[in-house]
Structures are given as C-alpha cells and as structure tokens.
C-alpha cells in the first residue's frame, strides 16, 4: 500500500506543477522493453522514459507521458494529441515525409533474427514481425513469408510456440529475451542494418520544440551522459556515440 500512496503523491505533485507552464506530452508505446515498457507498479519505465525525463529536465519543460497503441501512434501525433514520440521509432524516409525527427538518440543498429534452433529457416520460412515496422517491411520484401502481430511481445511468442520459424526485430529488444530463455531461443543468421537510428518524432510544424530537443540530445552525446544511459539499459556491447 505504501508504494501506491507514494505514486499518488508524486502524481499530485506533477499535476500541480503542470498548471505552472506548458506541458509537453510525450507519446510512447509501453510494450517494447528495454526501450519503453510498463513496470510491475503499472508505470512507464525504460531507456526512453529515463532519457525523455532527462531531456525535459534540461530543457526546463514539464513533461507528461502518454502511452498509445503502436498502430495509431503517428496519426495521434499529427492531430496534436501529444507532442513527441519516443517509442523506439526508427528514422525512415517514409515516416520523415509525414513527421519530423530529431537527430538520433540511439545509434543506427542492427535488426536480427531469432529462432528456436540453429537451423531455423529465416530466409525462406515464416518470419514474425510487428505490424507497421521497418522490420515487417523488410521481411515482406525478402523471400520469407511474413506473419504479422500487433505487439512486439506476440512476435516472440510466435517463435516459442512454433507459429513462426524466426522473429525479426531490433537486436536490443531481442537480446534480453534470448539471454533469459535459457537456450530455448537463439540468434540466427547475420544482423541486418536497418533505418537511421532511433529519434524523437515531432510534428513538422513544431520546429521550435524540435530545435530544443535536438540541441539537448547533441549536448548529451558530447558530455557522455547519453552513453552512460545506453550502457545502463543495453549493456556493454552497445554502440555508443
């Protein structure tokens, strides 16, 4: 009960502070650990949440997190239901036509295949990916048969229960899952570099806010705080800036 009351107090604090100045509403998915997820207390947590809070603190802005389904995450941004997206969203040309991105806060990394055995056929078999991601688009173009799920969690479950031969997703999303699976799941094939890293998405007309966050991300890259966060959430192997 204690924790509950604490969160209640924290909420009240943020709520009253919110009246003081404009609030930046930050959209995320809440289903993509370690980038963003919901912890045992039912609150948003993860690399992007920590980074987002730091960015807001440096910019002296009040920020509120909003979780939104991946499917409608961009339409809700452009119709101003929140102001930014930090949801492990890779910078692509397609998305860049509709929204703007800051410079990436997460280096261009690789997407990888995970299968249930060494022989998993990720080139011609059935490969699972989350709907409307760059990974789904990549599989659709290749020789494998794409099978789509609404959440990232379901794509991994599909490999476990034999629905798919392999899952194709961000390496860093898959890594903790493979580590915890005790040999049940493993990486197969070579990683594929996709996208231009992960950046914060904003409305194209919101140039001022984009400048602000862009500058701070630059600062954090230089002073090494961003690298520290990356290592904290993704381990020593992560490519840093």
């Amino acid at each position: 009960m204690k924790t509950l009351m604490m969160t209640g107090a924290a909420l009240a604090l943020t709520a009253s502070a919110a009246f003081a100045q404009d609030v930046i509403r930050m959209g995320t998915e809440g289903a993509y650990p370690p980038y963003n997820y919901i912890d045992d207390n039912g609150e948003l947590a993860g690399f992007e949440i920590e980074l987002g809070n730091e960015l807001c603190a440096r910019a002296e802005l009040t920020c509120e997190w909003v979780s939104n389904d991946w499917d409608s995450i961009i339409p809700n941004l452009v119709s101003s239901n929140y102001d930014t997206i930090m949801a492990g969203m890779s910078i692509t040309d397609e998305r860049d036509e509709v929204i703007d991105f800051t410079q990436n806060y997460y280096p261009p990394t690789e997407s990888a295949y995970v299968g249930a055995s060494e022989e998993a056929d990720f080139e011609g078999g059935v490969v699972a990916a989350q709907t409307a991601t760059i990974q789904a688009a990549h599989v659709a173009e290749g020789g494998a048969a794409l099978i789509e799920f609404a959440t990232p969690e379901e794509t991994v479950a599909a490999v476990r229960n034999g629905e798919a031969d392999a899952v194709f997703a961000d390496y860093d999303f898959l890594k903790p899952i493979v580590d915890a699976s005790g040999g049940e799941l493993m990486f197969v094939g070579d990683p594929v570099p996709l996208g231009g890293g992960i950046g914060m998405g904003l409305r194209e007309s919101d140039t001022e806010l984009k400048e602000t966050f862009d500058t701070i991300i630059g600062e954090m890259k230089e002073d090494g705080t961003l690298n520290e966060m990356l290592v904290k959430w993704f381990g020593e192997e992560i490519t840093t800036y």
Partner: peptide, 24 residues
C-alpha cells in the same frame, strides 16, 4: 489471429493504408 504474407481481410488493408498514408 495473425496475418500471413499480408493476406488479410478488408479491414487489414484499410488499416494498412491508414497507417501508410497517415490519413484514416
């Protein structure tokens, strides 16, 4: 139920376009 090889029903394609064109 998941969609295989992008062989879906009318709603699947409608939401595909809504997602790609960002215009529902």
């Amino acid at each position: 139920f998941p969609t295989r090889q992008q062989k879906g029903d009318a709603l699947y394609y409608a939401s595909y376009f809504a997602d790609k064109t960002f215009n529902p």
